[in-house]
């Protein structure tokens, strides 16, 4: 749980507004000019402050693991990403500070649940899927049914791995596929390349062995750097 200073301001506004409203409900003062001004603050100004800060915080909340994890359907992905012994791409990356608590968001920026799309119920395909179907499955049943909706965009990886570094370009497999990789025709996270980001979620025959996953990574020679 993360409670920012802004949240405390929002909560203070909410509490002050609530106290005034409760005061009105108990004492029912006549609605003269002064009381109206007070009530304008209590049902108008203060709640609007709370709502605006709440929106900011709510949008930010969608970037955090705890948000994704609030559906059990995502549990195994999160458990693996946070497993200190796991060597999956998701786990390796989650251990760096840039990912940390936001690890799902950094790689899945294009997932339809971020930003204002989330408030539009129409855009909430996943909530719909969750309530209509997945809420009733336990994790074992759900896992084989969850698939990435669109091919994963390499752009997401290229935020950090620019594909222009010397070591990166020194890898034969990268070199040969440069165009395909930049346009996303070949996924970085595919079997035979770096392997799936969440290998546990794939049926055995699709999961690359450790050796396979790393064969593409010919260690760069130290002299070259």
């Amino acid at each position: 749980m993360h409670v920012s200073p802004l949240s405390w301001i929002a909560l203070t506004c909410a509490v002050v507004a609530a106290v005034i409203m409760i005061y009105y409900l108990i004492y029912r003062p006549p609605l003269n000019g002064r009381v109206k001004l007070l009530m304008m603050v209590a049902v108008g100004v203060l709640p609007i402050m709370t709502a605006m800060i709440g929106n900011l915080e709510g949008l930010q909340a969608t970037e955090h693991q705890a948000f994704c994890g609030s559906c059990h359907t995502m549990d195994m992905h999160i458990a693996d990403a946070n497993d200190a012994d796991s060597l999956s791409l998701a786990a390796i990356h989650s251990r760096t500070i840039k990912f940390g608590d936001k690890s799902c968001y950094v790689c899945h920026k294009d997932y339809g649940m971020f930003g204002y799309a989330m408030t539009k119920l129409g855009g909430m395909g996943h909530v719909y899927m969750f309530l209509s179907e997945f809420a009733w499955y336990d994790m074992e049943e759900a896992l084989p049914k969850i698939h990435i909706a669109r091919p994963f965009k390499n752009d997401n990886c290229m935020q950090c791995h620019s594909t222009t570094g010397r070591i990166w370009n020194g890898v034969a497999d990268h070199n040969g596929l440069l165009e395909d990789l930049r346009t996303g025709t070949t996924s970085c996270a595919s079997a035979g390349c770096h392997g799936y980001a969440h290998p546990f979620s794939k049926p055995d025959e699709e999961t690359p062995s450790d050796a396979e996953a790393h064969s593409a990574l010919s260690a760069p020679s130290p002299e070259g750097t």
Binding site: V3, I53, G54, E57, G58, A61, A66, S70, C71
Partner: peptide, 11 residues
């Protein structure tokens, strides 16, 4: 509105 400030699950 205040609930979501402290529990940032989807609901």
């Amino acid at each position: 509105m205040s609930w979501s400030l402290f529990d940032q699950g989807w609901i």
